[in-house]
Amino acid sequence: KLETFPLDVLVNTAAEDLPRGVDPSRKENHLSDEDFKAVFGMTRSAFANLPLWKQQNLKKEKGLF
């Protein structure tokens, strides 16, 4: 399991300012399950079932792209 970080560490943070080991294209993977659901309004599995373009739009909207 990946290390999780608080939302404010990941949202609207440039790649070079992210904690070590965080993939800038997969910031959402480093949210706790609770934060993930609070941000996206759905579970990880529901998010994973969305088309890629919709996932990317949601990530942009939430500052996690």
Rank of each mutant, 00 (worst) to 15 (best):
1 K>A: 14
1 K>T: 12
1 K>C: 15
1 K>Q: 14
2 L>A: 13
2 L>Y: 15
2 L>E: 08
2 L>C: 14
2 L>P: 14
3 E>W: 04
3 E>Q: 12
3 E>F: 06
3 E>S: 09
3 E>D: 11
3 E>L: 12
4 T>C: 10
4 T>W: 11
4 T>V: 13
4 T>I: 15
5 F>C: 06
5 F>A: 03
5 F>G: 02
5 F>H: 07
5 F>D: 02
5 F>V: 06
6 P>T: 07
6 P>V: 02
6 P>R: 01
7 L>E: 05
7 L>I: 12
7 L>S: 03
8 D>T: 10
8 D>R: 08
8 D>K: 09
8 D>W: 15
8 D>G: 09
8 D>S: 12
8 D>M: 11
9 V>K: 09
9 V>E: 07
9 V>Y: 15
9 V>A: 09
9 V>F: 15
10 L>Q: 02
10 L>A: 02
10 L>D: 01
10 L>Y: 01
10 L>H: 02
11 V>A: 11
11 V>S: 07
11 V>H: 05
11 V>G: 04
11 V>F: 07
12 N>M: 08
12 N>L: 08
12 N>I: 06
12 N>D: 09
13 T>P: 07
13 T>H: 08
13 T>N: 08
13 T>V: 14
13 T>K: 12
13 T>C: 12
13 T>G: 15
14 A>D: 11
14 A>T: 12
14 A>G: 09
14 A>H: 12
15 A>Y: 11
15 A>R: 11
15 A>S: 11
15 A>G: 09
16 E>M: 07
16 E>P: 08
16 E>L: 07
16 E>V: 11
16 E>S: 11
17 D>Q: 11
17 D>T: 08
17 D>I: 06
17 D>P: 04
18 L>T: 05
18 L>P: 03
18 L>R: 03
18 L>C: 06
18 L>Q: 03
18 L>H: 04
18 L>W: 05
19 P>K: 02
19 P>C: 06
19 P>F: 02
19 P>L: 04
19 P>W: 02
20 R>Q: 14
20 R>W: 10
21 G>M: 07
21 G>E: 09
22 V>I: 11
22 V>T: 03
22 V>D: 03
22 V>G: 02
23 D>Y: 04
23 D>T: 05
23 D>S: 06
23 D>K: 05
23 D>A: 04
24 P>C: 07
24 P>M: 06
24 P>H: 07
24 P>S: 07
24 P>A: 10
25 S>C: 15
25 S>W: 11
25 S>R: 13
26 R>H: 15
26 R>N: 13
26 R>I: 05
26 R>M: 10
26 R>S: 09
26 R>G: 07
26 R>W: 08
27 K>D: 04
27 K>M: 15
28 E>V: 04
28 E>Q: 05
28 E>N: 02
28 E>A: 02
28 E>R: 02
28 E>T: 04
29 N>E: 15
29 N>H: 13
29 N>D: 15
30 H>T: 04
30 H>F: 10
30 H>W: 12
30 H>S: 08
30 H>Q: 03
31 L>K: 00
31 L>W: 02
31 L>V: 02
31 L>I: 09
31 L>E: 01
32 S>T: 11
32 S>Q: 03
32 S>W: 01
32 S>N: 10
32 S>C: 06
33 D>M: 04
33 D>Q: 05
33 D>C: 06
33 D>I: 05
33 D>H: 06
33 D>A: 07
34 E>K: 10
35 D>K: 02
35 D>Q: 06
35 D>C: 07
36 F>S: 00
36 F>W: 03
36 F>Q: 00
36 F>I: 01
37 K>Y: 15
37 K>P: 01
37 K>D: 13
37 K>C: 14
37 K>A: 12
38 A>L: 14
38 A>C: 11
38 A>N: 13
38 A>W: 10
39 V>A: 08
39 V>N: 03
39 V>T: 10
39 V>C: 11
39 V>P: 00
40 F>N: 00
40 F>P: 00
40 F>M: 07
40 F>Q: 00
40 F>C: 01
40 F>S: 00
40 F>G: 00
40 F>D: 00
41 G>C: 09
41 G>E: 11
41 G>A: 08
41 G>P: 00
41 G>F: 05
42 M>F: 02
42 M>K: 01
42 M>G: 00
42 M>Q: 02
42 M>A: 00
43 T>C: 08
43 T>L: 08
43 T>N: 10
43 T>A: 09
43 T>Y: 03
43 T>I: 07
44 R>I: 04
44 R>W: 04
44 R>V: 04
45 S>D: 14
45 S>L: 12
45 S>M: 12
45 S>Y: 12
46 A>S: 10
46 A>R: 08
46 A>P: 00
46 A>G: 07
47 F>L: 01
47 F>Y: 06
47 F>P: 00
48 A>R: 11
48 A>G: 12
48 A>Q: 14
48 A>C: 12
48 A>Y: 14
48 A>V: 09
49 N>C: 15
49 N>Q: 13
49 N>G: 12
49 N>Y: 08
49 N>H: 11
50 L>A: 01
50 L>C: 02
50 L>T: 01
50 L>M: 09
50 L>Q: 04
50 L>F: 05
50 L>W: 01
50 L>V: 01
51 P>K: 02
51 P>C: 05
51 P>M: 01
51 P>Y: 01
51 P>T: 05
51 P>Q: 02
51 P>N: 02
51 P>A: 07
52 L>H: 10
52 L>A: 10
53 W>Q: 10
53 W>L: 10
53 W>V: 09
53 W>D: 11
54 K>Y: 14
54 K>H: 12
54 K>Q: 15
55 Q>M: 02
55 Q>D: 00
55 Q>V: 01
55 Q>H: 00
55 Q>P: 00
56 Q>C: 14
56 Q>R: 11
56 Q>M: 13
56 Q>V: 14
56 Q>K: 10
56 Q>H: 11
56 Q>T: 13
57 N>L: 14
57 N>S: 14
57 N>E: 15
58 L>Q: 02
58 L>Y: 04
58 L>P: 00
58 L>T: 02
58 L>E: 02
59 K>I: 07
59 K>E: 02
59 K>G: 01
59 K>M: 06
59 K>A: 05
59 K>D: 00
59 K>T: 03
59 K>N: 02
60 K>Q: 11
60 K>I: 14
60 K>N: 07
60 K>T: 08
61 E>D: 09
61 E>L: 11
61 E>P: 01
61 E>Q: 11
61 E>S: 09
61 E>N: 08
61 E>R: 08
62 K>C: 08
62 K>V: 12
62 K>T: 07
62 K>Y: 08
63 G>W: 03
63 G>R: 04
63 G>K: 06
63 G>C: 08
63 G>Y: 05
64 L>Q: 02
64 L>S: 02
64 L>A: 04
64 L>M: 08
64 L>H: 03
65 F>K: 08
65 F>R: 08
65 F>H: 15
65 F>W: 14
65 F>Y: 13
65 F>N: 14
